[in-house]
Amino acid sequence: MTPLGVVRLVARKEVRDALRSRWFQLYAAGFAILALALSRLSLGEATGGGLAGFGRTAASLVNLVLLTVPLMGLTLGAGSLAGERERGTLATLLAQPVTRTEVLVGKYLGLGLALGAALAAGFGLAAVFIALGGGGAAAGAYGLLLGLALLLALAMLALGLVISAAARRTTAATGAALFTWLGLVFLGDLGLMGTALTMRLPVATLLLLAVLNPIEAYRIAAIQAITGSVDVLGPAGAYAARTLGDALMPALAGMLVLWTVVPLSVALLIFNRRSIV
């Protein structure tokens, strides 16, 4: 079987396993329900056609993505290799004529595909609701929002796979994933806020430090996608718009891609070297 064939097959297996796993079902259903509820809520406040809520629905969706997608990506990624190693099936798989790189890439793509399908379903249902509720949304911006969420999911999956490749046990991997999630979603920002308050960081430094966090890069890109500008982000947003201009979106997307490529390489490095049992 060709390397690509193996990747495809392992990916397919991973999609199957994800779709059949309780955790994934819980995540996917939770995401869809929350997305629906948020679009419903935003539309409920709508005051007149034409304005009805894309901006706000989209903002709610961004908030939802910020919280849930990193959680999903990190924990699914972290559980992937560690779980199979613990059950022993990883050895069975690697005893076949496949390379570890093929297996890891296949698992990564499969999980990405499954997560992407969950996001697409959530976004799709929310879009149906928005349209039925009389809300308007530029399909382009909405699609861009989903695309960015997918990039974030892929970055978080890659990071989860690093944890999974390095961890000894599933419980340790899950714990590390949760801690990483907490750090990226809350602690990093809070720390940066505190630093900005006490040290009066220059706006450029603040912006740079913030977007090093992939979740921040996603948030800023998403705001650009919804509102067409980063005005809402105040001086730092204005600085970003002025210095980067139209390159802002590619730069932020590039940051997310970087957060995908680097962790994935690290995961490969670890996975290729260590013992499977």
């Binding site: 903002a59 919280l67 979603v185 809070l190 806020m193 900005a196 982000l233």
Partner: peptide, 15 residues
């Protein structure tokens, strides 16, 4: 500290 507006809409702000 208007620079902090950078964190508008972030989970950290909500928290």
């Amino acid at each position: 500290t208007p620079e902090l507006r950078l964190f508008a809409l972030s989970p950290a702000q909500d928290a």
